[in-house]
């Protein structure tokens, strides 16, 4: 029940944060411009202490014209997890970088940039990490097209 306690604590600190109901783990959604502030609190607040960023990834929803960024956090102090989500407009995928809070985010954000084309403000070294440096486009976007790819025949 620690995670329930954490969720109510986060909600009392940030009233605009929404709890996600359709999720198999404690999860919250936050607006993009308050993300950095919330993340700093999640790591440093004595009752939360989410000191480990387990994973960071992005999901493409072309029908709803948005990218969803997901941050899975773990607290080694309390042994709980929390999923933080935020939405970006698809036409302007710029998000704040959390490298200053968890240094491991540097490579995870490079991966999200490489495959989804998310741009991170104040990232120290935003280069491609898996694909070649001269690759064009971002292959994990749903509308990615390539002269090499074969369409699955109907």
């Amino acid at each position: 029940m620690d995670s329930e306690k954490h969720l109510t604590l986060v909600e009392s600190l940030y009233p605009t944060v929404q709890r996600r109901t359709q999720s198999d783990r404690p999860a919250i959604t936050v607006e993009c411009d308050r993300l950095l502030e919330l993340m700093q609190t999640l790591r440093d607040h004595a009752g939360l202490r989410f000191d480990l960023l387990l994973t960071h990834t992005a999901v493409d929803y072309p029908d709803e014209n948005r990218f969803e960024l997901l941050y899975l956090l773990y607290s080694t102090v309390h042994g709980t997890r929390i999923l933080v989500a935020t939405n970006l407009e698809r036409s302007r995928p710029v998000a704040p970088s959390v490298c200053g809070i968890w240094p491991i985010a540097e490579w995870q954000e490079r991966e999200a940039y490489d495959l989804m084309g998310i741009l991170y403000d104040e990232h120290p070294d935003l280069r491609r990490i898996f694909l070649e440096d001269d690759w064009e486009g971002f292959p994990l976007r749903k509308d990615y097209q390539d002269s090499y790819m074969l369409e699955l025949p109907k």
């Binding site: 390539d146 090499y148 790819m149 074969l150 369409e151 699955l152 025949p153």
Partner: peptide, 10 residues
């Protein structure tokens, strides 16, 4: 990975 793959050699 034959179809809809941007990277695997066929």
């Amino acid at each position: 990975f034959m179809y809809n793959s941007y990277t695997v050699v066929r």
